[in-house]
Amino acid sequence: MSTYNKLFEITANKLNMSDVEKADYNHAILVSTASKAKEIDYKCFENINGTSLYIALYYAAFQKLPSENEIVETNKFSDEEIVKKVCNMAAFYIRDLKVINCPYQIKRNKLKANIYKCLNGIKNSIALRKLAKKMPSGIQNKIRGLFG
């Protein structure tokens, strides 16, 4: 077990996590450890399916975990649908991510990519960040969801 998984084991025990939750987050850690900022190697995800795949891929892409609602929504998705869903999120384009060694064909919308890449510059605008911080928390969460 890697240092990372051992550390996570400590926290999971303290939180009395269920085995399912533990397994999901262990997968997320395994696939993200030592990963590059802009690249996701799908080879690391080959043995992960369904909800676990969604959580691991989402975390690898955005360094965040999906909400409970989002997880429930993807319960009925195939692995291919899950991958395409994540790769078509605005935050995926804004973070300029790419997936390598992926068995599924991910059509990249060039126009969307260019528009969202511009938004990344906006994301780092200090003036706009200060403005966003003053907004109600609901709007702030929506903005965070967009930018990842």
Partner: peptide, 15 residues
């Protein structure tokens, strides 16, 4: 939980 996972990466790498 995502803060925990991000911190585990940082702390694990530090160790």
């Amino acid at each position: 939980k995502d803060e925990i996972l991000n911190f585990v990466d940082y702390f694990g790498a530090t160790l």
